[in-house]
Design a protein around this nucleic acid. Sequence first.
DNA 1: TTGTAGGCGTTATCAG
DNA 2: CTGATAACGCCTACAA
Lengths: 346, 346
Amino acid sequence: MPKTTLVSLAASLGVSRQTVSNVINAPHRVKPETRMRVQHAIAESGYRPSAAARQLRTRRSMNLGIRLMPVVDGINGSILDRFLHALTESAQDEGYRLTLFCAESDSGEIRQYEELLKVADLDGFVLTGTHYGDARTEWLLEHEVPFAAFGRPWSSVEDPFGSGHPWVDVDGGAGTEQAARTLIEQGHTAVGFIGWPAGSGAGDDRRAGWKRAMVAAGLATDTLDIQADDGVPAGAQGAERLASRGATALVCASDSLALGAAAKMRQLFPEQASGTVIGFDDTPVAAAVGLSSVSQPIEDAARHIIAVLAHELAGTNFPGGEEVPERHLLLPPTLIQRTPYSFSSS
Amino acid sequence: MPKTTLVSLAASLGVSRQTVSNVINAPHRVKPETRMRVQHAIAESGYRPSAAARQLRTRRSMNLGIRLMPVVDGINGSILDRFLHALTESAQDEGYRLTLFCAESDSGEIRQYEELLKVADLDGFVLTGTHYGDARTEWLLEHEVPFAAFGRPWSSVEDPFGSGHPWVDVDGGAGTEQAARTLIEQGHTAVGFIGWPAGSGAGDDRRAGWKRAMVAAGLATDTLDIQADDGVPAGAQGAERLASRGATALVCASDSLALGAAAKMRQLFPEQASGTVIGFDDTPVAAAVGLSSVSQPIEDAARHIIAVLAHELAGTNFPGGEEVPERHLLLPPTLIQRTPYSFSSS
DNA sequence: TTGTAGGCGTTATCAG
DNA sequence: CTGATAACGCCTACAA
């Protein structure tokens, strides 16, 4: 049983291979009658066109690339699973495949772009972890390689919506703002913030959100803002410092920080009502220990990234097709409120 | 600047395209002099052969497929990052690319095999989560599709090493055995086990390890073995039950279970020395909360999986090449001992 | 050692 | 609306 190809199929049907090709790529150009006959035969034989041959001819691989970031913090990284899964699923639905690659640095990633573009003819890339002065987006734009980013172009922060490339992001600032506001509404007047050192787009954004809520409530922020590298111990340390300055509740830039902070706060104020620490990302850890957290609609983000990218890619061929997806999309996060897991008897 | 190809390169060098091809695929057949000249030109122009064209001719895509399992428990799933990363990196080193795909079930995965084999010409697959009577391995063997599994073929548990396909696994039983033995050596005489319902290969294996240690120490196991579905609450519940039966220490089949169990144990025995619960997988959560856990050498496993698979694939062309990697490899895990994170003042 | 010819499976172009 | 012809870039014969 030799593999069925366009020719073998055409031969067994008594039509030219071109007709079969047309049935697949331009059905409207084929007489309904023969079209049905061919389609039936295709289904019958389980014929699938060869991607390699098609790619050779069309210069399109129907393949998207995405870099797997080095594993740093397993806690915050664990939502990558969800992202990747949603990405792959959406890509599959649109007829694209996803190719993984690794790189140690941004320049390494760019080197991979060149390589993958040349050898595998990738149609586009999905970027994650965009930051100030991102060399990758520059390179891709310059070389006119289609791509979509998960993350705003922080370089043009004054007007990310005017940016030249498609992106999807989650409005982290809105999340921390809501988190802080919620705590304020619960009666807290000194809500602290533990975030990353200034300079990272997402980090600054989250800090700004917290500050907005505090300012809006007429509360002071000067002594309640701590910059720390990510991690559980840093969170605990930060919480201790902030508590000593009077903070009774905290918003954190990550679940790692929040996990440490929450434990410390519980230790310092064992009598206090629960829910005084809110994390970010809604990682499995947060769910496990009952930590409130800002949840990103990461599946939606992934879906949309594929949608824009696919549209971008098809768009050149079909200008003005179906409804076009937003080129720039800022999704609102959701505050997941939890009470610390009590482990009470069943 | 048109893309350089074999022909364009050959033309600009005044040699035939065949010579260039030979320099790449069979350097020894080319006169050193011209070889050097061609190699120089290749480096100069940054020429890279087109995978599509090569694939069309050789029927090899240099592409490996791996299914992304549906996200169930984010906690235990988070080591997938490490696995995937190591896998991609190794594949890259061997000249392979990794293609992702999704499937809801094993039969869905098989359907994807067919599809991907036909359209993308994937050279092989990496399997994860093998289980009793795995239909996937059967299908792949039957269709003579190269693959390597992360996980023993549990169906032929009497002699997995005689199995027809390559696999790499971690000796979970050895891990839980060591965990239990360690607790016993610490003076515990009633070490409980919380694992999954009987029937899963890995789960039964881990339970068996714990039992071996108990039996070896002449301790009873009858009432200290609990079967529960995975999850934090189940762990807490299990711990409560086991504690009521006298257990003073626990070994768990997962970090999820262990997390719940540890919290419950601390609540029940606040005075007790730390370290009475040991989890499995050494997930980021375990590290974060200071939970002892059995750590899998997952990067090593990934590396070896690619090594066997690559050898399997090349082997048909180069019988008797370099040193051959083991077709069946059982890696020992490591017990990571931790004391619960104290969040003490800095 | 090097060059020539043919074809892998597909789509684009242009006749009929 | 259908079919012949010519690539796409590469590799495997075989011939020079």
